[in-house]
Write a protein that binds this DNA or RNA. Structure first.
Lengths: 381, 381
DNA sequence: GTAGAGTGTGGGAGCGCTCCCACGAAGGCA
DNA sequence: TGCCTTCGTGGGAGCGCTCCCACACTCTAC
């Protein structure tokens, strides 16, 4: 809709084709190699990308030697190495990855699969931090990170074909839901992979997650220590193990304090701000005397705080609030939010490291890592 | 010279070198290729991924025919097509992309290059919307989107090598700064590419951008119409053409109303919330009587509004504020923000479309598209 | 002297695909 | 009837790499 002024550009007329490699195809007929002639009759490679063979010719060595130099093999004489490096520099040689992949079946790239809409991807700092950690860890390697969003069945099928076609060496999967078919797919494809979180206790794939139950316990203990008597919780989607673990931690803290676990103090939600608001409204209705809320994410806690304010409750005086994640959101609420910090970037970093290890050793051993959480006390509780 | 004895490679029994396709390792397992069939002396390649050749054998046709079917060529008889499809289904054949790429030098993937830290990438809804649009457009194709962050010189070099190694068919580049070497790199690599925004009027690469000057004009006219007399502006980084264009629009609107353009009503900033705050504080100091601010981004406007409130100015009564982007931020400020909407998702979509076109036609013609902006009036002005 | 054990090296084979040429069969037209 | 098209088809020839084997060459030890 609306006017889309589209003006084709002016001259810009490159007669030849735009791409570099196009040059390779020399018009009609003309057998490619026949006139290879004596010595290196090759026309100095001109524009087309130089190949390893051309480097070898220029350096006066064989293909094997160039390959060895490029791949850092020690079994090359100093003289040959220098000649090759000079030739590489002169020609501006860069190895063709497809050719290498074809032989080695390694792609030097890994996929970060996010089974969520991009709205969630970007509204939650969680993903940003994961990506941050992953790419930090990868920065030292020459692995390339591909970000793949999977939002529906169709895209799931595309991903499946993509992975089957051997286009990545390994997969990082975040946001794991109980019934998500993706982990099983990864299992059956036998492709190295690491999950952020897990499906359950018996997760067979490698994973990294935070001590969710422990963090939740700390948070609730803190609330109880402050004297709160009616501690509610707003949960994440319970088809995610992390959300269940946080709920379990909440329950454990109550029970170890000899307090009852009451169903109607539990507000199920979905990690979104809107969900947090909704759950908070319902809690206020069911339990007007509630004096504390432990939320399974900062974003939900932010929503809850808005609802509380709108309902005329002061935070933390009337109702104490604790979030989870200690994301940037926690620092920007009014009052600043007490939150359980989970080292998300560290998780991303660890995931990447584990995946690289798994790829390197042909991915037999699974590994699972749990990272500690801690309570960051600010003003909301 | 070298004789190179050609002993038929044994039964896959490579000692050391493990290869990617793990499954190949026969170990103790059953030889999956039971009746390797008649004729073919080849050890039936066992379990590993089926190749086109195996499909051809099973379907009783030649390689060429299978290739034609897989690539949807019309020049195949119905009978052959069915036989091939049946064989593909039976074997679970998926083409090997590396092999295809090696021949065609097409990779079926494009890169979205973001020359920013991931903090900015995620804190600004702009990028999220761009990605959203791009992936929406790509959803119908079998192009894969790679997201590549470039944060420093080192990563820029890696990107350069990556692109030179022909690993993508085209590049989308967002957030273009004046002195950014990336566009020139793309030019010299002669790789199809589309920018979000441009370096200047004479941008030789394809690009998509919004009518920044027009949007800014509308905003400032609106402020003047409301009776504001001291209209300030907080700009984006002036090494970005978009930021300059918004400033130019601000100036044009003033001049067409016969009002002077005053340097000290211009607060240079950097599109971030923090920058917006800083600039607003300085403006208040220099020009306490300021009664309106046009900000070149919503995020900066949000920062400015916080500063104004802290300084005891009411929005819009004392100072009217207008943002730019009409991002989700604009709807969440208090009061809700009047903002210039630019169709960011549409921009992403368009960028992807242009890039696909450019790739398809070997990237001869450059194309440039300007999308209209509109003023969304809410409560802040 | 010879054998043996290294080193560095060239280059054949082949990864799985697409491109393209040649070829037989079927049709169209004089 | 002959001759030219058209169609569908098989399969050779590579794409640019890595792998690995055979071959000089060195050294050492006897």
């Amino acid at each position: 809709m609306s006017q889309t002024a589209q003006r084709p550009t002016g001259p810009q007329g490159e007669p030849g084709s735009g791409r570099g490699q196009a040059t390779a195809r020399p018009g009609s007929g003309s057998g490619p190699g026949p006139g290879s002639g004596p010595g290196s009759a090759r026309p100095a490679s001109a524009s087309a990308r130089p190949t390893l063979e051309e480097v070898a010719a220029l350096a006066g060595v064989g293909r094997g030697t160039v390959s060895r130099v490029v791949n850092g093999s020690p079994r090359v004489s100093e003289k040959a190495r220098e000649a090759v490096n000079a030739a590489i520099a002169e020609l501006g040689y860069v190895p063709n990855r497809a050719a290498r992949t074809l032989v080695t079946s390694r792609t030097d790239s890994i996929a970060l699969v996010v089974p969520e809409a991009e709205t969630r991807l970007f509204s939650e700092p969680y993903f940003s931090d994961i990506i941050s950690g992953v790419s930090a860890e990868l920065a030292e390697t020459d692995m390339q990170l591909l970000l793949i969003l999977v939002r529906n069945q169709r895209e799931r099928e595309r991903l499946s074909a993509y992975l089957t076609a051997q286009r990545v060496d390994g997969v990082l999967l975040v946001s794991v839901h109980q019934d998500d078919p993706l982990p099983s797919l990864l299992e059956s494809l036998e492709i190295p992979s690491v999950l952020a979180g897990r499906r359950g206790d018996l997760e067979p794939l490698s994973y990294v997650h935070a001590d969710n139950a422990g963090g939740a316990r700390m948070a609730v203990r803190h609330l109880l220590r402050r004297g709160c008597r009616q501690v509610a919780t707003i949960t994440g989607p319970l088809d995610m193990e992390g959300a269940r673990a946080r709920l379990a931690g909440y329950r454990q803290a109550l029970e170890e304090a000899g307090m009852p676990y009451l169903e109607d103090l539990v507000g199920p939600a979905d990690f979104t701000e809107e969900g947090g608001k909704l759950a908070m409204r319902e809690l206020l209705e069911r339990r007007p005397a509630v004096d504390a809320v432990f939320c399974a994410s900062d974003v939900m806690a932010a929503g809850a705080m808005q609802v509380l304010r709108a309902a005329g409750r002061r935070v933390p005086d009337d109702v104490a609030v604790i979030g989870f994640d200690d994301s940037i959101v926690a620092r920007h609420t009014e009052p600043a939010m007490t939150s359980v910090r989970q080292p998300i970037e560290e998780m991303g970093r660890t995931m990447a490291r584990l995946l690289l290890e798994e790829i390197a050793e042909q991915g037999r051993a699974r590994r699972q890592v749990v990272l500690a959480t801690e309570l960051v006390v600010r003003d909301s509780a």
